[in-house]
Every structure is written in structure tokens, then in C-alpha cells.
Design a protein around this nucleic acid. Structure first.
Length: 701
RNA sequence: GCGCCCAUAGCUCAGCUGGAUAGAGCAACGGUUUUCUAAACCGUCGGUCUCAGGUUCGAAUCCUGAUGGGCGUACCA
């Protein structure tokens, strides 16, 4: 499992992973103070810019056996290291920090032997197989910004794991069946007039989405109609009518209780001050008595008053609950909803007409998705379809019953009790023997393992399903599946807009295709203004614009840690300057252009180059940290780490480019060749990192 | 009610195996091009790291509690 990996990453320490320093420090402490300490007790960090040196050892922890001041301890260890280690050419101590100066000869040697090799950065195969499931769309509507985050994360994590030595299988579990697709089908049947992607010139997934929206609009009208004419409407059955009416009477009764109580306690509340009075008003407006209850509890000793407010609070809760159930009853009672459910039953029974319609509309959607996936640059080795897997898992229920992991209730439904683990009781099979969500996920997990026998399996799914996956993994491990310990839920936060949450009902969803197009357009505009693309054919320009637009989008979405919510402002979020994808692309293009102009011969050496510029030293340190960064990003499943690393590298390079004497005009062959090779290597690592995020880099821009 | 996640500069984010004066970008202001791509570089301004306790030589980082925001707590998926 990844979690067992020993190496630990931190932005401060990955620059200086130098075992010889740790080893020498261990022996220094043994010699000086007679104490044997573990290598893990020594932490190295990169020296802050304002002090001399590259590597810093914190000496505070050693004072307990040196019995000297941190500074003096540092002096002693420093002196030992200077004498014993040829790579160390100097040191200084400030308070409890021992700063070591590593000789340029060491850095140049490191560059020669390791960093400048063509295969630098690819970790050796680790013999492990990992599955990354991502995307997993519903087939009733096109992809939106939230899916984009999911797709980019999944793709990127897969690339990172590949680079870290895994064999990776990317899978997409397509949710192609269920009530949602029946809604689109039904609306198309009733209102579509034979419209197809071909004759309407609409992308297939958008066409199907259009009818999903139509369904929701129609049902909204039916709901309004029913609510306005509850006693007379013929749209619902008498059974539903009676159920709704009974909920209404519950609501009415509780409203009366609240009205009565509020009138009688209002004077007492006013006496508690303006604060309480305001809360009384907002309680009525917002249908929430909790804030009022809190303030009354705090301010009033009158138990009867508290009880009365508490009564209002309880009644309000009953009202809210009844209203929710009422709404659900009305919604499910509408003719359209009943027809959709009828259609789902027909689908499950294999009704030919329904199946054919389903196949046709799904094919439209797949053609649309394929285009979006191609534009996003994501791909999969294996597709699973819920229409194939939705009946799976029942054998596991049987297995669980035999192993006493599950238990049967009197009605025949099957449950698991997870209260000992701090969770709840959870239904795993309905009384009528049909599956619930988790049943088929159990079955699908087993299927995937049977198909591929992978060591690890990553599910890229939003954080609203955290609980579900906790339960899923726990059940599998209770069933004795040894592979369950390799399961991991890569949970990510929702994408918010400035206006708040994206809601399909309110039409505030940012469509993936629109987004990609807008990004490309913005990049086009920006690039044309800079006017640097002479010699590009129109096709090359178009390709470049898309590359830059996508880089802006992808980098913006990936640079934030997955678990965090992400605020996306379509107007302002995606920039081309500063901490952005295009900035990093630009740095790469700059390097390529430089190397091209220099006519650099890759065989030319830099013998005699002995003294580094500070910027060169920093670049070497940064390059040296790449493998540790990669390992850490793989361990944490974090493209954001790659994003931040490569930005730092590009920034350091730009500083070097700006501050170093012009390379093309450098006469000294060793300096010139070294700097060109350094540039080349930085460019290669930038390209690698961007590739890990699915972002291309141009030769010119 | 219970559970999980988040909180760092005006805005968007880094930093979290505990270490020096908490860093970037954007925004604002100023500077750099007869030097290889100014999508760059440099400077100024900007912070009670949500709050209160605790552990420690040392806390943005670990622990406890609170506050605020989000999500979940379905015989939906």
C-alpha cells in the first residue's frame, strides 16, 4: 500500500535529500557525544535564502545529549562534518541552525551523473498494479465543470502513478441505466418529434440533456397544477391525495400550535431585549426556531418560556419534515413520474421498444462524451456499464449472511451493523431481494478485482460520498477480502461559482464543452494581441490556442488540493500570467527557443566549469528534488504537489534566465554549454511535470 | 442530534513527518527591453495564520474545546 511508503515529502525538504549528510551527522553525534541516533531523527531542510549554505540541520534536538547550547552543538557538528566530508566546504551556525555549504564540485557532479541523464525522473517499475476509476458520468446530460475536475484529477493521478512505477488501469464506470435516463427517454418520446443529433445539429449528449431538462420543466408544471387543485385534480390517485391531505393536516395543526404559542410568549421574549426580539421575527420568517431557542436558554431563567420556545422548535421540525414528505409524494405521484417509473420497469423486463430507445439515446450520448473526452485529453483502458453490473453483489450478500457479517430483519431485508465502528446500521439488500446502491458497488468491486487482480484501486468521486465509501470499504474488509486494504477513495471538493453552488435546476451549471471553447477563445485573443506567431499556419495556431487555453483551465483546477472546495469565476479565474499554466508553458517555450537558437550540440561538455551562479545552484537543488516530489505526489494522490513544484521550477528558471549573462553571447564554451544543458534539463522536467497533469507544452508561443 | 471536510494577505492559493523574520500569484503603486520570447524580471504596499486553552526549548503545523462555512446522516445513485 502507498501509505506504507517510508519517504515523506515536504516542500522544504525535498530539495535536499542527501543521505551522505545524514549518515555523517549520525557518526558525528556518535563520535562527539557517544549517542547512537536513528537517521530519521535528523531532519534536513533547505537553507533560507538570506543565509549562506544550501542544507540546514536543526540542532535543538541534539542539545539533550551534547549538554551544550544549540549554537555550540552546531559548531561542533559543523566542524566534524567539514573535516570528514569532502563535499562540505563550509558551515555557519545561527541559533539552533547549522547551515552547511556544499561545494559546487558536488552540485556539478550531481548534475553530470544524475540530473542531466535523459531518463532522469522516471522511477523504476515497482511491480504493482493500480486501478484508477474516474469520470463515471450519468448518460442523461452533458458533462459540466464538476465532471471536469473529476476527469482531470483522475487522469493526472493515473499519470503520476505511472511515472512512479505503477502499472495503471484507468476505468470509467458509466451510469447508463436508472430513472434519470428514463426521464430523458420519456420526454423525447413525448415531445421530441423525432429530433436527432444529426437532424438538429446538436451534440448527442446535449440533445439528451435537453430532454432531461424538458422533463423537469414539465413535471414542475404538473406539480404546480396538483398543488393548486389538490382536492379536485385528476392527475394523482386518490391514495396519493389522501396521503398528501393527511400531511397537510399535520402541517396545519403544528402551525396553529406555533401561532398560539408565539402570541402568548411574545411579550416575555421582548423583555429579553432587542436581540431576542429580532430572533423571534427571523424565526417566523425562516421557519427556524433554533437561534431563538439558544438566546432564550442563555438569557431567561424561566423554564416555562424555554419549554414553549422548545415546543415551537419541535413543531417547526415536524412541519419541515411533513412538507418534505408531501413534496416527495406529489412529485412521485405525477403522471410523468409514474410513467418514467413504468418505463424503468419495462427496461428491467427487457421490453424491446424501451431497450431500443435506450440504446439509441445512449449512443448519442457516448458520441458526445467521446468528443469531450478527446478535447480534455483523457482516456480509459476499460469501461464498465451499470446496465451490466447493477444486478451484481447479491452473491456477496449471501456470503456475508453465511459469515454472519450481515443479518436479516423480520421483513427479509438484509443489514450490516456498523455501530461498533461509529457508523450506523446500513441496508445492503431490500426485503424484495432487489439491490441498493451499495449492493452493486460491492459486486462491482469484486468484479474489478476478478478482472485485473490489482494491488490498489482508487475511486475518484466527490466528497459528498465520503460516507458511502467508508461503509463500502469497511464491508469488504469485514467480508474478508484481502484486497480491501488497497481501496482508496480520492475525495474532492465541489466546484463553486461566485453565485454559489452549481445547480442544474437553476441553470447555473457551467457546461464542459462551452468552457473548453471559451478558454480556447480567450487564449486566441490573448495570443493574437501579443502577436508573436509569425510563421504559424492557421492549423498550428488553432492547436496552440487550444493547448494554452486548456493549460490555463487544467492548471487552475489541479493546483488546488483535491479535498478543498474550489471557487471558479468564469470571468476572472483563468489567467495567463503569474501562477498559471500558460506561464509554465511560456517558460518551456523560452527554453526551447533558446536551445534552438544556440545550435546546441548535446555531446558538448562543460569541463572546467567549477563555480556556479546562485541561480544555477538553486535550479540544481530544485531538479534534485523531483523524484522525491513525484513519490510524494503518488503517495498522496496529489496533482497539486506537481503543480506547485513545477511552478517553483519555472519561476527559478525565469530568474536565472533574467539574471545570468546572456547565454548566446557567452564566449566561454564551458559556461555556455553548461547553461544550455541546464536549460535543456529544466525544460525536460517542466515537460514531464506538465505531462503528469495532462498539459502539453509548446516549442514556441 | 451525530459524523466527516474546510478556515492562512482585499481575492485565489502554497506552507502542516513541530524549527529561523509565515510564502507565491492576482489586485494597487513604482521600476527594468540598442541581452537569448516583457505570457518575464525587480521593488513597495498588504497577515492578531478564525478564536480560546493545552503539549513543547520552539506551534500556522500536534491535542482539546468553541465559532463560521460545506457535505453527509435515504429501502436515491
Amino acid at each position: 500500500m502507498l501509505q506504507d511508503s517510508v519517504q515523506v515529502y515536504s516542500l522544504k525538504s525535498y530539495f535536499c535529500r542527501m543521505n551522505f549528510i545524514i549518515e555523517q551527522t549520525v557518526s558525528a553525534i556518535k563520535t562527539l557525544y557517544g549517542v547512537e541516533i536513528g537517521e530519521s531523527e535528523i531532519s534536513l531542510q533547505q537553507t533560507r535564502r538570506e543565509f549562506e549554505g544550501q542544507v540546514t540541520i536543526v540542532t535543538f534536538p541534539f542539545t539533550r545529549f551534547s549538554r551544550k547550547s544549540p549554537e555550540q552543538t552546531g559548531q561542533e557538528i559543523g566542524a566534524y562534518l567539514l573535516a570528514s566530508t569532502p563535499e562540505i566546504s563550509g558551515f555557519n551556525t545561527i541559533k539552533g541552525f547549522l547551515n552547511l555549504v556544499i561545494s559546487d564540485r558536488y552540485w556539478i557532479g550531481l548534475f553530470n551523473d544524475k540530473l542531466s541523464r535523459a531518463d532522469y525522473g522516471q522511477l523504476a517499475p515497482n511491480g504493482k498494479k493500480v486501478m484508477v476509476e474516474y469520470s463515471s458520468p450519468n448518460t442523461n446530460k452533458p458533462l459540466h465543470l464538476g465532471h471536469v475536475r473529476n476527469n482531470l484529477l483522475g487522469f493526472s493521478v493515473a499519470e503520476i502513478l505511472k511515472a512512479a512505477g505503477y502499472e495503471v488501469i484507468r476505468t470509467n464506470l458509466v451510469n447508463d441505466r436508472g430513472i434519470h435516463i428514463c426521464k430523458s427517454m420519456l420526454a423525447w418520446q413525448q415531445f421530441g418529434n423525432g429530433e436527432t443529433p444529426a437532424n438538429a445539429h446538436i451534440k448527442g449528449d446535449h440533445l439528451v440533456g435537453k430532454y432531461y431538462v424538458r422533463f423537469e420543466a414539465e413535471i414542475k408544471e404538473q406539480i404546480a397544477e396538483i398543488k393548486n387543485n389538490l382536492t379536485s385534480t385528476s392527475l394523482i390517485s386518490n391514495e396519493t391525495r389522501n396521503a398528501v391531505l393527511s400531511k397537510e393536516s399535520v402541517i396545519k395543526k403544528n402551525k396553529a400550535i406555533i401561532n398560539y404559542t408565539v402570541t402568548s410568549i411574545a411579550p416575555a421574549i421582548r423583555e429579553l431585549g432587542p436581540d431576542a426580539e429580532i430572533r423571534l421575527e427571523t424565526a417566523l420568517d425562516n421557519a427556524n426556531f433554533k437561534p431563538l431557542l439558544d438566546v432564550v436558554r442563555k438569557k431567561s431563567p424561566d423554564k416555562k418560556l424555554i419549554e414553549a420556545v422548545s415546543q415551537c422548535n419541535e413543531s417547526q421540525k415536524v412541519i419541515s419534515e411533513a412538507e418534505e414528505i408531501k413534496n416527495e409524494l406529489v412529485r412521485n405521484g405525477t403522471p410523468l413520474m409514474r410513467e418514467a417509473q413504468q418505463m424503468l420497469r419495462k427496461w428491467e423486463a427487457g421490453d424491446e421498444e424501451v431497450i431500443n430507445l435506450w440504446k439509441m439515446m445512449n449512443d448519442w450520448v457516448y458520441a458526445g462524451f467521446e468528443e469531450t473526452y478527446r478535447n480534455l485529453g483523457v482516456a480509459f483502458e476499460k469501461f464498465y456499464y451499470e446496465s451490466d453490473t447493477y444486478l451484481l453483489g447479491k452473491d456477496l450478500i449471501q456470503e456475508g449472511l453465511e459469515k454472519d457479517v450481515f443479518f436479516k430483519k423480520d421483513d427479509g431485508s438484509v443489514w450490516i451493523d456498523l455501530t461498533a465502528e461509529g457508523l450506523d446500521q446500513k441496508l445492503v439488500l431490500r426485503a424484495d431481494g432487489t439491490s441498493v446502491y451499495i449492493t452493486q458497488d460491492l459486486g462491482t468491486a469484486q468484479l474489478k478485482y476478478d478482472d485485473f487482480g490489482m494491488d490498489e484501486s482508487i475511486y475518484v468521486v466527490g466528497n459528498e460520498q465520503d460516507y458511502h465509501f467508508k461503509v463500502l470499504f469497511l464491508i469488504l474488509s469485514k467480508l474478508g477480502k484481502t484486497w480491501a486494504k488497497g481501496l482508496y477513495h480520492l475525495s474532492y471538493g465541489m466546484v463553486d461559482l461566485p453565485s454559489g453552488k452549481m445547480k442544474s435546476r437553476e441553470g447555473t451549471v457551467v457546461d464542459a464543452d462551452d468552457l473548453i471553447r471559451e478558454m480556447t477563445e480567450t487564449a486566441t485573443q490573448y495570443t493574437e494581441e501579443s502577436g508573436r506567431l509569425d510563421g504559424f499556419s492557421p492549423e498550428e495556431k488553432q492547436e496552440l490556442h487550444q493547448m494554452i487555453g486548456l493549460a490555463a483551465l487544467k492548471y487552475f483546477l489541479l493546483k488546488v488540493e483535491p479535498q478543498k472546495r474550489l471557487l471558479f469565476d468564469p470571468k476572472e479565474s483563468v489567467e495567463f500570467q503569474g501562477h498559471t499554466g500558460p506561464f509554465i508553458q511560456y517558460s518551456h517555450a523560452r527554453i526551447r527557443s533558446l536551445v534552438a537558437k544556440a545550435n546546441y550540440d548535446e555531446n558538448s561538455g562543460w569541463n572546467g566549469y567549477e563555480t556556479l551562479l546562485p541561480e544555477e545552484r538553486e535550479l540544481i537543488l530544485a531538479l534534485n528534488g523531483y523524484p522525491a516530489m513525484l513519490e510524494a505526489a503518488a503517495k498522496d494522490h496529489s496533482p497539486a504537489m506537481v503543480a506547485n513544484y513545477v511552478y517553483e521550477l519555472a519561476r527559478l528558471y525565469n530568474k536565472f534566465y533574467h539574471d545570468a549573462p546572456p547565454i548566446l553571447k557567452t564566449e566561454d564554451a564551458a559556461s555556455r554549454n553548461f547553461r544550455l544543458r541546464l536549460s535543456l534539463v529544466v525544460g525536460a522536467i517542466i515537460k514531464r511535470c506538465m505531462g503528469l497533469m495532462g498539459i502539453g507544452v509548446p516549442e514556441r508561443m
